[in-house]
Design a protein around this nucleic acid. Structure first.
Lengths: 337, 337
DNA sequence: AGTGACGATGTGACCGTGCGCATGCGAGGA
DNA sequence: TCCTCGCATGCGCACGGTCACATCGTCACT
């Protein structure tokens, strides 16, 4: 019969010590794998620990070591497939290394909001931060803040001083564009992401580079908001002008909306227009027509982020990863003209 | 010029006290909004706080109060749209109430894994846990563990003793089925979720109830794994038997795969077969044909979970929410025969 | 005027760890 | 044999808050 006042007090390191007949300090040494412990003593302590079902108090440990074994995730991308898979991978990788993960969603990306978020995380004493906030301005704010804390951003940054990593967006976008060109398309539009987003810029650059290298005309990109709904309306609009034969969309959601918009306007994909997306979300292989797109390995990005961040935290040599390759997934939505 | 040894020591409550000319306890009272503080004293303290840029050390506070102001999220559903939107909402709602959020992904759902996860979270001193682990067995394990900690599960549970909440899956599924019936369909299949999942069972029950109430024949449901790929293969298989005119799939991903499978087999949706999904994921409105589906308000579910959990933690009256309504979104994929 | 209640503040202990330093003990070299 | 050294362990304090209790002054009430 255990009621609320039963909150006895969990066993502490001293309770363990008493039961094992050693000092609390010895118990602490066992817990931290100190080398100078007789095996016999160690097993006595371990027995006592399991008898009492002792669990170290992480708050006390954090207080005295001023390290929390918690990683913060600062995210400004809600519910999207890519970031979500990366976050899951980050959590798993962090747990494997004995770190917990505290996630914080950024409502808006004003400098104040970012500042507050970082301060909040530092109040929580996180040992490092992974930033999934792909907006250019977030990146700048962070740089400007001179955060007194190890952090990694998951985006391809222009400068290489801030630690950041991601798949090679430019190359992926260029490959998609080149594929369209190799299929004989010469008038290729780009449905871009929001101006502020690093990835949007990278993918646009890949598109522009691809066309320029082939000496083909570029069109001013259409600025979208990543959403399928926007893609749909863009498709309706674009169907009025018929000065293109292919569209490269900056993500799959917009590409799928685009397919819908074209369909509703009587434009047949891929017969009349070819479409390529970016990300390879799970439904991309099943929409009609199935979507040719650029695949990237989100989980691996997350894992690498953790490895880099932990190296920074531990003061080890920060591993140098090459840029992650993207992979063009050929499906039905892009064909030769 | 600040080097590593500069780790001076962040200002503590006593530094603030010294600067403000009061005792450390008075500072503590200001921080905790104690009523008996002269406004004048309070402002002196606040000034000192902002001068020193003082931030309370949460670890120290957690140590002495044995409450961490952290909520744990135990998730066994990776990367799916629904849970992901709920998690984001949980995080936001928790932050608004001054709680941080620590997420833990469950690799597998063996009792040991669940036990370890809960123990890990309790080591981290979380004040409560939100469980997004829709498998029946997780639910049982948790009940069996007699977790000494407030927790909420996001699933519709059969028994009402465990605190849990979600949209009314049974009603939603029944509405979908009834809609097909009202369109004149009499031979309706169900593409179900994995056997172990609470939601899969609820949706199947709604399907069965709907048919029974209309005195229509039920078919043994096809067990899927929630994935679009599975839906695709199911579509290919089903196209061989033509003893049905409609399919109700337990989630949108499988429904979208199904559309693809039917399409590849020469079966036209909705002309030959009507299809209804569940969840209303963002692409559902844009696939071809656009998908009739059951919408549920995932963010609201997350917010309610936080409210209930916090009430439990604070020992307040736990608010009694009615079950959340689902909403049938009529689109192109289901028509009268 | 005396007294009790209450408001505003201070004092010291305590929460559960890890760290620095001291201590005891046995082995090995002079 | 004595001294030194390294291993194994213990002692006390510090980390930065909160809590229980003490103190002191003011004001209302008898």
């Amino acid at each position: 019969m255990s009621n609320a006042s039963d909150r006895a007090r969990l066993p502490s390191i001293r309770d363990v010590a008493r039961l094992a007949g050693v000092s609390h300090q010895t118990v602490s040494r066992v817990l931290n794998d100190h080398p100078s412990i007789r095996p016999e003593t160690k097993s006595k302590v371990l027995d006592a620990i399991s008898v009492l079902d002792y669990r170290p108090n992480l708050a006390a440990r954090a207080l005295v070591t001023s390290r929390s074994n918690v990683l913060g995730i600062l995210s400004a991308t809600i519910g999207e497939f890519g970031p979500t898979s990366s976050i899951a991978a980050i959590e798993d990788a962090a747990r494997e290394e004995g770190y917990s993960v505290s996630t914080l969603n950024l409502g808006d990306t004003t400098p104040e909001a970012i500042g507050n978020a970082v301060r909040q995380l530092s109040r929580e004493q996180v040992d490092g931060i992974v930033v999934l906030a792909p907006q250019v301005r977030v990146f700048h704010v962070l740089r400007g803040m001179s955060v007194e804390m190890p952090f990694v951003t998951l985006q391809t940054a222009s400068g290489s001083d801030g630690v950041s990593l991601a798949a090679d967006q430019v190359a992926g976008a260029k490959a998609a564009t080149a594929h369209l060109i190799s299929l004989g398309h010469t008038d290729i539009l780009h449905l871009a992401g929001p101006q502020d987003w690093i990835e949007a810029e990278s993918r646009m650059r890949g598109y522009l580079d691809g066309l320029r290298e082939a000496d083909l005309p570029t069109f001013p990109p259409i600025r979208g908001d990543w959403s399928a709904d926007f893609g749909y309306f863009a498709g309706k609009e674009l169907s009025r002008r018929r000065d293109f034969t292919a569209v490269f969309a900056a993500n799959d959601l917009m590409a799928i909306g685009l397919l819908h918009g074209f369909r509703d306007s009587g434009l047949r994909v891929p017969h009349d227009v070819s479409v390529i997306g970016f990300d390879d979300i799970p439904v991309a292989a099943h929409v009609a027509p199935t979507l040719t797109t650029v695949h990237q390995d989100f989980p691996e990005i997350g894992r690498r982020a953790v490895r880099i961040l932990l190296a920074q935290i531990r003061g080890e040599q920060v591993p140098e990863f090459g840029q992650l390759q993207t992979l063009l997934r050929l499906r039905e939505s892009a064909v030769s003209r």
